[in-house]
């Protein structure tokens, strides 16, 4: 059964900030959804191969050929902050 600590852990991994109210709410709702999902355990899948690809395909490859890149202004056009042709982000370490 999922508890608040699990929700906090998942939120940490997903880089989501949740307030107390959201934590409570998600703990309950996700718990309900996972309860529903638990019905999967009713099916015997011991010898079943998992399906990641519904249409079986293999070896989709391209030639090692250089294609034109985007003009740099276009690459940076949506950047919330930029400097000297680079994307600018807040510093890495906290004080």
């Amino acid at each position: 059964m999922i508890d608040k600590k699990d929700v906090e852990y998942a939120a940490g991994l997903a880089q989501l900030k949740l307030d107390e109210e959201e934590k409570e709410k998600y703990t309950e709702q996700i718990g309900e959804i996972l309860d529903y999902v638990d019905k999967l355990s009713e099916l015997d899948t011991d010898d079943v191969v998992p399906t990641a690809y519904t249409v079986p395909m293999k070896n989709v490859l391209r030639k090692d050929e250089v294609q034109e890149s985007l003009p740099r202004e276009k690459s940076l056009a949506n950047a919330p902050d930029k400097k000297d042709g680079q994307f600018r982000a807040p510093k890495i370490m906290s004080d």
């Binding site: 490859l61 391209r62 294609q67 890149s69 740099r72 690459s75 042709g85």
Partner: peptide
């Protein structure tokens, strides 16, 4: 298909795929 050449100006070798823009997909070299 972006070039791997070393020493270019920052972000000159970028495209929607390697910038991870929404909707882009990888195709293996």
């Amino acid at each position: 298909g972006c070039s791997t050449e070393f020493g270019k100006e920052p972000n000159e070798n970028t495209c929607p795929v390697c910038l991870g823009l929404p909707g882009t997909l990888p195709v293996l070299n």
